[in-house]
Structure formats: structure tokens, C-alpha cells
């Protein structure tokens, strides 16, 4: 579904991701893990079309991506952001936020679709006309997930979707993401620094360090602590050590 070949991404001329290649199959959940500065979010931004200075090839569903993302792309790939406090427009109600993608793409039947999506992400319908500041962090993240799903994409890019949430709320959101993937056959590309989340939500993972891919492994190998790169094992040890 996603094919990354020799991707190099720069910020103001300084490369921060160096020649990264990996493939994500249809319906698969793939994680990019690493510390801050490893370039994991940058790769996501390049795929999403938010970072423009890149070379190499990015393919989505077999189509090579250029610098600009067209309407067909955004209906296929959507993103959930890290910070549920910053990813919702502070002056727009849940209804506005969820209707916007439908309005942009001139899709009819807004009321029904918004209500159905609220049900799908487990948000009570009475929240429909609330503003973000009237919602908790977990509820906001549900809205953000709902917004990403409004255009019924096949791929979700997840940028640390639970790192700003409390642990008990994190569990709810992780369950929701797992359920949605099972129901809709979604492909996930998850970026995180938290290895246990990868264990729960993903099939394979790529370990990034200073913009280079150190290894790609099955999650089973992560669970048994058998990552083969030295850096991968170091991350596992640190994660286990708290």
C-alpha cells in the first residue's frame, strides 16, 4: 500500500532522513520507532505532503507521489496528529470539524455521515455541537480520528496518537484504533517512541536512529526482545527499565 524507496528528507537544506526504504502492505500495521530527532515524524510528514524537500520515491497504492497531493490522495491517506489540543480548531464545533472534509469534497448527506462517524468512534451524539475546550483529551482524540476517517481513506498515518493522553485514556484510544482497523481493513503507519504500543497495535516495526533505518523486524521479535540491531536492543532495554 505504501512503498518508500531511498527517501531522503531535508529541512532548509540539512538532510534529517537519509535513504530510508520500507514497504507497508495493504491492511498491515507498520510502526516507525525512534527517539526525537530520529526523523520518524519527518518521514510521515513527507508522505503526507507536509514536508516538501525530499528525494527518492514515495508510492501510495502503486502511484508515485509528486510534490503536491491531489484530491484522490487525500481520500486515500489521512493523518491523526499527536496533540489533540492542537489538532482541533479552537473555534469550530465537532460538527464543523467533521463536516469540513465533506464540504471540501462536495460530498452530500453530511448529517447522516457525521452522526454515523460519531457512533463509530464511540462519541456520544450529544457532543456533536461542542467546542474542543468542552471536551477531554481522549474525546478530542476521538474527534481527530473521526475527522481522519470522514473521507473513508484506506491508510491512516498516526503520529504519536496517544503520547499526550493519560494512560487509562490511552488504552481506550488504542482499543479504538485496533477495532477500527479490524472493522475497516485499514492500513496503519504509526510513529511512536513507545515500544509497548507497537506490541499492541502493529505487525512490523522499523527502528530509526538519526535519520537512518537500523532494522525492520516482526513485532514477535520485539515481544521476545530479539531485535537484531544493537540500537534496537538498547531501545528495548531502556523501555523495560522504565
Amino acid at each position: 500500500m505504501i512503498g518508500i524507496e531511498d527517501l531522503t528528507v531535508s529541512f532548509n537544506g540539512t538532510p534529517v532522513v537519509h535513504g530510508v526504504s520500507f514497504q507497508v502492505g495493504r491492511g498491515e500495521s507498520f510502526a516507525l520507532v525512534g527517539e526525537s530527532g530520529s526523523g520518524k515524524s519527518t518521514i510521515l510528514k513527507a508522505i503526507a505532503g507536509q514536508a516538501h524537500e525530499w528525494t527518492g520515491s514515495i508510492r501510495v497504492g502503486g502511484d508515485a507521489m509528486g510534490r503536491r497531493r491531489d484530491a484522490a490522495f487525500v481520500r486515500r491517506v489521512q493523518m491523526v496528529f499527536q496533540d489533540p489540543y492542537g489538532s482541533l480548531h479552537p473555534r469550530r464545533t465537532v460538527d464543523d470539524t467533521l463536516s469540513e472534509p465533506l464540504a471540501v469534497h462536495r460530498i452530500a448527506g453530511r448529517d447522516g455521515k457525521v452522526l454515523a462517524m460519531l457512533d463509530a468512534v464511540g462519541l456520544s451524539r450529544r457532543f456533536r455541537f461542542r467546542l474542543p475546550h468542552q471536551l477531554s483529551g481522549g474525546q478530542r482524540q476521538r474527534v481527530a480520528i473521526a475527522r481522519a476517517l470522514m473521507l473513508e481513506p484506506g491508510v491512516l498515518l498516526l503520529d504519536e496518537p496517544t503520547s499526550a493522553l493519560d494512560v487509562s485514556v490511552q488504552a481506550e484510544i488504542l482499543n479504538l484504533l485496533a477495532d477500527l482497523r479490524a472493522e475497516r481493513g485499514l492500513t496503519y503507519l504509526l510513529v511512536t517512541h513507545d515500544l509497548p504500543i507497537v506490541s499492541f497495535l502493529c505487525d512490523r516495526l522499523g527502528v530509526l536512529r538519526l535519520g537512518r533505518l537500523e532494522e525492520i523486524s516482526e513485532v514477535a521479535e520485539l515481544r521476545t526482545g530479539q531485535l537484531y540491531s544493537a540500537y534496537g536492543r538498547e531501545l528495548v532495554a531502556r523501555s523495560a527499565g522504565g
Binding site: 487509562s168 488504552a171 482499543n175 515500544l195 506490541s199 499492541f200 515481544r223 523501555s239
Partner: peptide, 19 residues
């Protein structure tokens, strides 16, 4: 509940218990 809801490195549960 809080302790149970944290995913583990060797996580095999398909659902996390929720508070």
C-alpha cells in the same frame, strides 16, 4: 485498573482493559 491498562512490551492482549 491503571496498572492493567498500560500496554506491555510483550503485549499479546487484543484489547486493553479500560477503567
Amino acid at each position: 485498573g491503571l496498572l492493567a491498562s498500560v500496554p506491555q512490551l510483550n503485549e499479546t492482549r487484543t484489547r486493553l482493559p479500560v477503567l
